[in-house]
C-alpha cells in the first residue's frame, strides 16, 4: 500500500508528537518520586495512558492512574475506564467528589448542581493522601487561552495554586522538575497536540474510547444553547421539553455540564472528518461552565483545577 504525501506527513507529524510526549512522561517519571496519571475516561486521557504504556514497553507503566469521580458519570465511561485500565495492567485509584461532600470538605451543590469545580479539592486531597508529587494530565494548549500559556510542567504551591507570572522557563524543552516538600507539579505531555492530532492517534493505533464519543440516540434537553443528556443530575425543569436526537460527545466530563453535539459520525474516520471541518472549539461547544466568563479557565486553574 502506498501512502499519499499528505497521509505520510500526518504520520510523521504524529510520530514527532508521540515521541515528544513519551520523552516528557519518561523524564518526569525519572525526576519525580511518586507520579500519577490523571485519567478521566475522556479521549485525551485515553491517548495519554496509551502513550504511557508505549513509553515503558516492554515493561509496565511504573505508576498508577487516578480517576477523580464526580459521581455524575456516564455509565458507559465507567465501564470503559475499568476495562481499558485493566487491559494495560495498570493500578486504578478512584477519588470521589461524593466522599469530599460527605466529609464536609466541600459544600453540597445539591443533586443537580455541577460538581466540576469541586473536583479541585478532591484531587488535591487525593494527591496529598497518596503522597503524589507529580500528576500527568491530558491538557492541550489548543483548548483555551489560559492553557495556551501553560508550560510542559506546571508548578502548584501547597494550596495547589497556579501562578502564571512565575512559570519556569523551559528552554529547549529541558524540564526542571525540582520541587520543595509539599509542592507538586502537573505535567502535560500532550501540550502541543490539537483535537485533530488526538483523533489521528486514536485512528492510527485504534485506541479504545467510551462509546459516547460516537453518534447514538439520546434523550436531551437544550439549555443555554447546550444539549444536555436527561437523567442523573439533569432533571427537566417546568417548561422544558426533551427531545430524542442523534448526538455524540466531543469531550467527556461531569454529566451535569457536558453538552452533546448533533452528529451522525459513528466511526473514527467519520469523527476525524467532522473535526477537520469544525467551526466551534471543543470547549465552546460542550462545556457549560467555561462560557460564563472569558477568563473562566484561568480562574479555575488558579484555584487548582487541572
Amino acid at each position: 500500500m502506498t501512502m499519499t504525501d499528505s497521509a505520510r506527513a500526518t504520520d510523521q507529524a504524529l510520530d514527532r508528537l508521540e515521541a515528544e510526549a513519551i520523552g516528557v512522561i519518561r523524564e518526569v517519571t525519572a525526576e519525580c518520586r511518586a507520579p500519577v496519571l490523571l485519567f478521566s475516561g475522556g479521549k485525551d486521557s485515553a491517548v495519554l495512558l496509551h502513550l504511557a504504556a508505549k513509553a515503558f514497553r516492554p515493561g509496565r507503566v511504573p505508576f498508577p492512574v487516578l480517576h477523580v469521580d464526580t459521581g455524575h458519570n456516564f455509565p458507559e465511561v465507567i465501564a470503559y475506564r475499568d476495562e481499558f485500565v485493566s487491559s494495560l495492567r495498570v493500578e486504578l485509584l478512584v477519588a470521589s467528589v461524593q466522599d469530599s461532600i460527605d466529609r464536609g470538605r466541600v459544600p453540597d451543590p445539591g443533586p443537580t448542581g455541577s460538581r466540576n469545580r469541586l473536583q479541585s479539592v478532591t484531587l488535591l486531597d487525593a494527591l496529598a493522601e497518596h503522597g503524589f508529587d507529580a500528576a500527568f494530565g491530558g491538557g492541550r494548549r489548543d483548548e483555551d487561552k489560559a492553557r495556551a500559556k501553560e508550560r510542559l510542567l506546571s508548578f502548584r504551591d501547597r494550596r495547589g495554586q497556579w501562578e502564571p507570572r512565575l512559570q519556569r522557563p523551559e528552554p529547549w524543552n529541558v524540564l526542571n522538575a525540582r520541587i520543595a516538600p509539599g509542592e507538586h507539579l502537573r505535567a502535560f505531555p500532550l501540550s502541543n497536540w490539537t483535537e485533530r492530532d488526538i483523533w489521528s492517534a486514536i485512528a492510527r493505533d485504534r485506541i479504545p474510547l467510551p462509546s459516547i464519543y460516537f453518534a447514538h440516540e439520546r434523550e436531551v434537553v437544550e439549555r443555554q444553547r447546550m444539549l444536555l443528556a436527561v437523567g442523573g443530575p439533569v432533571v427537566l425543569e417546568s417548561g422544558e421539553r426533551s427531545t430524542h436526537e442523534i448526538v455524540r460527545y466531543r469531550t467527556v466530563g461531569d454529566a451535569s455540564c457536558t453538552g452533546a453535539i448533533r452528529s451522525t459520525a459513528t466511526t473514527i474516520d467519520e469523527v476525524l472528518a467532522e473535526v477537520a471541518t469544525a467551526r466551534i472549539t471543543e470547549r465552546g461547544a460542550t462545556r457549560a461552565d467555561d462560557t460564563f466568563s472569558d477568563t473562566a479557565m484561568e480562574d479555575r486553574k488558579r484555584e487548582g483545577y487541572f
Partner: peptide
C-alpha cells in the same frame, strides 16, 4: 486579545508569557 489570554495581560495590554497557537 486573541493571544493575550491572561487577565493581567488584558488589563495591562501586554504579553506576559509565551502563548502557543496551532
Amino acid at each position: 486579545l486573541l493571544t493575550d489570554g491572561l487577565r493581567a495581560e488584558r488589563e495591562q495590554g501586554i504579553t506576559i508569557d509565551v502563548a502557543y497557537r496551532y
